[in-house]
Simulated scan of single mutants.
Amino acid sequence: MEELRDEKVVLELISTDLVYEGAVWDVRSDTVRYGDGEMTRQYVEHPGAAAVVALDDEENVVLIQQYRHPIKERDWEIPAGLLDVAGEPPLETAKRELTEEVDLEADRWQHLVSMHTTPGGNDEVVHLFLARGLRSVETDYEREHEESDMRVERVPLADVIDGVLAGRLRNGILATGALATAEVLRREASAR
């Protein structure tokens, strides 16, 4: 078998309509030629995001807990933000979000994975990065809305993995980032 990878498909676009224009993302309805016929699909058009697994020297992950209205929960997450600055590469977005959300900078950055969050319902791609060599910085960033009462904790990576596997931590970006980080650490240890 050749290398396993997702496969890009180019379809003839028959029509596309903006169904809803939102503050952050839009809803679109596309009709495409597929096989011997046509199909219409609605989806959320999303700018994408970058997220950070900030790992300190004791292998604690910096987590934030904030309210998320669609799920009506305060879930645990890793720092993340939209790719909403024109021309800003995902790594720069990740660096900016780490500073804005948890007042940290990092000396070492590594791309972990890029993932489609919900390919059946939106076109969002989240780029996850591992940040190490953390240091505190002073910021004057004003946190509002869900960020105004955000909780920040450093949690052992092993506890985060346990929470993901037990179903207590269900944020997909957190789960992917924590599991990818554990694999990076495992590979680094086996290479020594």
Rank of each mutant, 00 (worst) to 15 (best):
N122Y: 04
K95C: 01
A54C: 06
L112C: 08
A180S: 15
N122G: 08
E2P: 15
L83S: 06
L4I: 15
G167H: 08
I173E: 05
F129A: 02
A51Y: 04
P119F: 10
T181G: 02
A180G: 11
V52Q: 03
R108I: 00
L157K: 03
D103L: 09
E73G: 01
T176M: 10
E12S: 06
R135W: 07
D140G: 03
D123Q: 05
D162E: 09
L130F: 11
V85C: 01
E97M: 14
Y67K: 09
V85N: 11
E2D: 06
L128K: 11
E45T: 01
D140S: 13
A182C: 05
R5H: 09
G121L: 10
L63M: 10
V9L: 08
L82W: 08
V113L: 12
P90D: 04
E92A: 01
A182E: 14
G167I: 15
S136Y: 11
L98S: 02
K95F: 00
E12P: 07
G133L: 08
D57V: 15
R74T: 07
L174R: 13
H69A: 09
I64V: 15
A106I: 13
D140L: 04
E21L: 02
W25I: 13
D56G: 09
Y34R: 07
L104Y: 11
V32Y: 04
R41L: 13
R186K: 14
R132G: 04
E45G: 03
N122C: 13
Y141W: 09
L134C: 08
E100R: 11
V32R: 05
W109A: 01
G121R: 10
V9K: 15
R168S: 13
D57Y: 07
D6V: 06
V10Y: 07
E183T: 15
V125Q: 11
D30Y: 03
A94V: 14
A166E: 15
E188W: 10
L13Q: 03
N122R: 07
S114W: 00
E21M: 02
R135M: 11
P119G: 07
A50R: 03
G87Y: 00
H69Q: 13
L174P: 13
L165H: 12
R74K: 13
A51T: 12
V10K: 10
E138D: 12
V137S: 02
Y67D: 09
E12Y: 01
G167S: 06
K72I: 07
A158T: 05
V137R: 07
V126E: 07
P156W: 04
T93I: 15
I14M: 02
E21S: 13
W25Q: 00
K95M: 03
V113P: 05
A189M: 11
G35M: 09
W109F: 03
G121E: 08
Y20M: 08
P90C: 04
L18K: 05
E38N: 05
V9S: 00
E38A: 01
S15Y: 02
T176Q: 13
A166N: 11
A175F: 03
E58W: 11
D162T: 12
A166G: 08
T181L: 06
L112R: 09
Q66D: 13
E92V: 01
L112D: 12
Q42V: 05
T31Q: 05
R187K: 12
